[in-house]
Design a protein around this nucleic acid. Sequence first.
DNA 1: GCCGTTTTCGGCCCGACTGTTTTCAGTCG
Length: 589
Amino acid sequence: MSNEQIAVLLRNVAAAYSIKDDKKFRFQVLAYQKAADTIAHLNSEIMDYYKSGTLDSLPGIGTSIRSHLEELIKTGKVKRFEWVFEGIPGAIFPLLDIPSFGPKKAYALVKHFKLKNPKTVITDIEKLGIEGKIASLPKFGEKSQSDILRALSEFKEGKGKTTRMVLPYAHEVADKLVYYLKELPEVDKAEPLGSLRRGVATIGDIDIAVASNKPKEVIEHFTSYPYKERVIEKGDISASIMVSGGRQIDLMVQPPDAFGSLLQHFTGSKNHNVHLRELALKKNFSLSERGIKFLKEKNQPIKRYETEEEFYAEIGLQYIEPEMREDTGEIELALANKLPDLVELKDLKGDLHTHSNYPIEPSHDLGLSSVEEMLNEAKKLNYEYLGFSEHNPSVSKHTNREIYEILEKRSEKIEQIKSNNKSVRIFKMLEVDILPSGKLAIDEKSLSLLDAAVVSVHSVFSMDKNKMTQRVLAGLSYSKAKILAHPTGRLLNVRPGYDLDWDKIFEFCKKFDKALEINSWPNRLDLPDTIIRKAVESKVKMVINTDSHRVSQMIMSKYGVMLAKRGWAKKSDILNTLSYNDFSNWLKS
DNA sequence: GCCGTTTTCGGCCCGACTGTTTTCAGTCG
């Protein structure tokens, strides 16, 4: 079973518990939801945890859920779950993906209309709504009937609870809205928060916090946004709108002197906030977006915090960078004043994976900007060095000799530019395909023309984990191969990427002094953050690259840095924070 | 069901908004 399937099953268990007896099973519901979230966000197969007997090392999975999962994997079913699902109609489950549908609403509808078929339940309900039969149910009315119909039709057009967008698109939507909000004089500050601020690879809803003493005016302005499709909610201090493409934007307002606690609250993550608030409760503090209530002191007003730093300090914590706020150990470290000093954008001294438009006749895409243009941009970015890593010349269209000649010519051109350009140093590199056999696409003689190679997989993604690991290690074993580019091959919202045996990869990288790339390309963001974290723990070195194909893309390293921070990478974990001489020595080692 | 720097028992975040209600349940983040 896939992680996704297991996550869905656990979510269904939570929903079934909630229908069975909301009060009695309150904590089971929470526990199963948390376990489902954990599994849904794993970057390696749940089967690997099962095989190594480490299932209960995962947050939210204890002895009980672990044994249920083991039973599931061994026998294909779980006795306890069968009991939980008893009397719960299967037709409720497809409804749970639809925004505004929870277990209660789904059950009420399915039960009342005796809907049996999970495959048709959505169209069944739609039909009942159109016939006007939902409005007469107890606790339902005309408004909820039309809300249901709209939710169903938006769902059919792709607006589900789990649909997510890639980072730059989310930034674009958020930036436009922030710009619009700031047109209102009553808006002191407006900032995008949530998963966008934490640098999560894909974004669900966009969250925006506003500092203002006039919340009514702000909400009015926000809900009048000209590019909105509709207003979802509109209250005194918060509101939600939907913009084109079914994207939801949530906004919340607090007075400027309480902006710190709002930033903290709205940045999340949910798990981080829950942990923080539980911790605070033990000290008799109650935290919220409004500030801190001191529970021992009766009738005291809520204390407000203008900055997040003050807010964290009041609870006795070091300031925690947004990228770390996932409740994966950062709160414990902050308590002990032992948070790592994370890598920053300004630490980067170069980019080793860029594609110029030099006519190298590759089988994959060529860049669109010239070597000179890219060097100019590198200078603007304060880089000391830049590596050109166009794709290798097409193997099917050229002989080895022709490839050598193409690379020789390129080498001469680069040497020429080097002599005219002293401000940014150049590395002569190449992105070389690792063929299915594990061989590199070009031979040793051609490789000898390079300072080093970035190697990567661009074909036959469907190999199993062991074979793919062997393939990648074979490719990395060439002495010129120094960096494994976009190591998992994932394309966000397109394909999941292949599985590698990370322990073996890490071991190899350390032994032979190779580096893993953190690819900043927004549809890749590869390595995934959880694997960066493991690499950091294993003391494997990494390089943050952009994979730019034109000048304007070279600033994308900011996404790579956020990703690295999510993996708790320090400056010392990232090799392209080294000076030219030190990096050059490593590259040629 | 999970979890532990006051706990292996006894806790478990906090508040916003909506529709159907006249005080609250459901959903969301």
